[in-house]
Nucleic acid binder design. Structure first.
Length: 164
DNA sequence: GCCAACGTTGGC
DNA sequence: GCCAACGTTGGC
């Protein structure tokens, strides 16, 4: 029995890895590596399931905002960068037999016809409770309610039906 | 570039 | 186990 689809938001700095970079990746898919926050790790390890949809948010840019939608295509597995001494995300305490950090694979699904800047999210009363607009919210992987997800899609000029 | 918010580290 | 110091995030 399929569990109900859930919705998420991931942040990425476009100078580091933009939505266009995701689209340009093999199969428009990448592993969401380098996350070094336990709460975000737990979300990827325990909660993100194949078929879940993800808002792709550009942070540290002007203006920050939601640029597109991605889909979870592989569930949690060990982040290889934690074992690579040459990688900036290397974690000397992580053990192969008991990995500390987890990734999921995400695939680009649809770019929003209209970019939805943070200002617009904040201006929408329906999104007042949305995590990403809360002051001091730094989580790079966070849950989004179905209603908030639909509203952001609508603001971006997409319908849920467009996502198949 | 600044700095507020927040998570982690480490001395005690 | 407390909490000050420190590093990072990310909007502005």
């Amino acid at each position: 029995m399929a569990t109900k689809k859930r919705y998420w938001l991931v942040k990425s700095e476009p100078d580091v890895f933009s939505y266009a970079d995701l689209v340009a990746s093999k199969n428009s898919t990448t592993l969401w590596d380098g996350v070094r926050n336990y709460q975000a790790r737990n979300t990827m390890r325990d909660d993100m399931k194949v078929g879940d949809l993800v808002l792709y948010y550009h942070s540290n840019t002007k203006p920050p905002g939601v640029v597109g939608v991605a889909e979870v295509v592989r569930e949690g597995y060990p982040d290889p960068t934690q074992f690579d001494p040459n990688d900036s995300h290397f974690d000397p305490k992580a053990k192969v037999e008991d990995p500390t950090w987890i990734v999921v694979d995400v695939r680009a699904k649809a770019e929003l016809p209209e970019y939805v800047p943070l200002d617009a999210l904040k201006a929408n009363a329906k999104l007042a409770e949305m995590a990403v607009i809360q002051r001091g919210q730094r989580l790079s992987v966070q849950p989004v309610s179905a209603a908030h997800f639909r509203e952001v899609l609508r603001m971006g000029g997409l319908k849920a039906a467009d996502l198949g």
